[in-house]
Design a binder for these strands. Structure first.
Lengths: 152, 152
DNA sequence: ATAGAAGTTAAAGTTAACTTTAAGTCAAGC
DNA sequence: GCTTGACTTAAAGTTAACTTTAACTTCTAT
């Protein structure tokens, strides 16, 4: 059982958060969560860690790396259960990220769509090939360029 | 210079395809591209490899893994420059993949949007948390569930 | 003939996000 | 007293997609 009402063992925390104990230890080494130590040097996680892990999981679903998540969580108080307000702040920012990614993918799809049937695939000319064009060319409209047969 | 009009050294191929020679060797071990060997055991890549590498790069931009790309390319003749028709077939399939990913992300965003301000973050109830719900819940409409304060 | 650029192979290194393993500690139940 | 289960740490393993390194060999130009 838990160390107390407010503190849980690593096993319990893992079970309730739906992650492996190894993941919790890993998160701890990365500074994403914290623990205190009880008798026998065993970890005791505060209840608030459960929410933190939840946030981590949501953020991961959204495609954020642990490093990015760490930055975001750094803004939250470690020893307090994140409030609705905390969550709002984070989720709004994350939605922005998501929106951006979606927009990028849509532009990529449009580019791809306009390229279907084009068949150019010219390394030097096709917009799909040039990563540096990515920001610039996305939304810059379709380009139907047939390779000249010599520069592919 | 190239071995002939139709064959290029690894260095030239790398330069023209915009990838490192190490990447080309790597792709070769993965069966994504092929080479013949001249005297001295040096690789000679057929011109068509340039297009193949192009396809690989585009596919990667679209988010496909080398393994998936390998499958797609397996349908293409190794010793022939992919034609517009080949490209059409691939790009249509890839667009489908892209569409699906975009749809997923949009559903995720909608879910996130509806969760902003909700602040539930209940491990047991919030739709954002449950990966297995992902397929089912996406598009299943928003869920405003406040945690009961005891389950997370 | 010889320097230097470009190639070759096998193996190890890199990053992310963890898991697995090894070896040992600790508390509870019988 | 002893087995069992949960826990601890450090280190190694895993997958993807390459890059880097080491130790040579071959080609090209002078």
């Amino acid at each position: 059982m838990g160390v107390s009402k407010d503190y849980l063992s690593i096993g319990e925390t893992a079970k309730r958060a739906g992650v492996a104990t190894s993941a919790l230890r890993f998160y701890e080494t990365k500074g994403l969560i914290q623990s205190t130590r009880g008798i026998g040097n065993q970890r005791a996680y505060h209840r608030s860690v459960l929410r933190r892990v939840s946030l981590i999981k949501v953020a991961q679903t959204l495609g954020l790396s642990l490093r990015e998540i760490q930055s975001a969580l750094a803004a939250l108080p470690a020893q307090r259960t994140p409030t609705a307000r905390d969550w709002q702040k984070l989720s709004k920012q994350w939605r922005g990220d998501l929106d951006r990614r979606i927009t990028e993918l849509q532009a990529l799809r449009d580019q791809l769509t306009s390229c279907i049937g084009c068949g150019c695939l010219s390394l030097k000319k096709c917009a799909l090939y040039n990563p540096q064009d990515k920001a610039a060319s996305l939304g810059a409209g379709p380009r139907f360029l047939m390779g000249d047969g010599d520069d592919d």
